[in-house]
Simulated assay, not measured.
Amino acid sequence: MTPEAILSDLVAIADLPGASNARMAACIRDHLARLGVECAVLPGPEGDRVNLFATLGPRDVPGYVLSGHMDVVPTEGQIWSSDPFRLRAEGGRLYGRGATDMKGYLACMLAMVPEFQAMGLRRPIHLAFSYDEEIGCRGVGHMIARLPDLCAPPLGCIVGEPSDMVPVLSHKGKQAVELRIEGQAAHSSQPDLGVNAIYPAAELLLFIRDLAARLAAEGPFDARFSPPCSTVVAGVVQGGAAVNIIPDRCAIQMEVRSVPGQAPQDITAQVLARLAQLEGVRVSHRELSSYPALPPPEDRALADLMERLTGKPALQSVSYGTEAGLFHAAGVPSIICGPGSISRAHRPDEYVTVAELTECCALLRRLGQTAAG
């Protein structure tokens, strides 16, 4: 099947993060089964979600992992020109939720299987499909933990997030956290009988603001990123029920994006320490999402290979995050390269072009030829 036909099948499945991905996993497994490819099903601890892992070529030889996530972001609140879960072709563009982020890459992976099978691969090409990437790369870690049982240590991993088919070397790490403050409700005419949770939350917000300014002024800095420092942002504040009720609860959602060499948790820890110092209220927190940075490679072997296969110089860094940092942290050299543009992701009328899918398949074909040696 062509990547366009496979993409049509994938887009039609609206499996969202945080819920069962049974339909998407079944669709991918069916495509592989028709080609005689065995696929390992790796259930996650949630009980209703799975990662998938398949190997073409010898398992006991180091090879390459092609990795992509199966989930897509919701379409609620967006106005589309057509059904987002029905692929629409127009003017060389293929419209649909996930077309560029990142079912286009998954379609190319599957479309290339017959060619990989015919190449007599001396080094394997592994196909890795993960879940819940869009809510903090929650699924792929469970698959990475199983890699020693599934294959020899890989030579490299190509995470196919949309990069305009340009190899990308690095990105920042991230942690998002919800901070909770609990006071005591009372009638607003007698505020002394309550404890207003919004006021200490305001103190914490000012601390986050000042911490962001301090990071911008003092670093650490890495000129390969824009901005060149770690950042911390308070993005959501929720508190109070009515103007005549002393608010007994307030929640702040914040995120840290950190340059390589500085763990986002170290910055979050400063906020949590300030949270614990708030007086007269009960406090708690929970992590919303987290993934490590992908640092620039010390060994250029994978980067050099990808530059040669794509014919494009590698881009030093991107502002978005990916599962590549988790593969790197597990000792697998990793790089980002996939069809489509990140500027189209998560937006109405998301699309990938036929030309981009063709270019991606050409890259994977050259990788297969390299693996066939």
Rank of each mutant, 00 (worst) to 15 (best):
P3W: 09
E4F: 04
I6Q: 07
V11N: 09
A12F: 00
I13T: 08
D15R: 03
D15F: 14
L16E: 11
L16N: 08
L16G: 04
N21A: 11
A22P: 02
C27N: 01
D30L: 14
H31Y: 12
L35F: 03
G36A: 13
P45A: 10
G47L: 12
V50G: 10
L52Q: 04
L52G: 00
F53T: 12
T55I: 15
L56W: 05
L56R: 02
G57S: 07
R59G: 07
V61R: 13
P62I: 09
P62W: 07
L66F: 15
L66W: 15
V72K: 03
V73S: 07
V73Q: 09
T75Q: 09
T75A: 05
G77V: 08
R86W: 02
G92P: 03
R93W: 00
L94N: 05
G96A: 00
R97A: 04
G98H: 01
D101C: 03
M102R: 02
M102T: 06
K103N: 09
A107S: 11
C108W: 14
C108L: 02
L110C: 02
M112S: 12
V113F: 04
E115T: 14
H126L: 04
A128M: 09
A128V: 03
F129E: 01
F129V: 04
F129C: 00
S130E: 01
Y131W: 14
E133Y: 05
E134A: 05
G136F: 09
V140H: 12
V140T: 02
I144P: 11
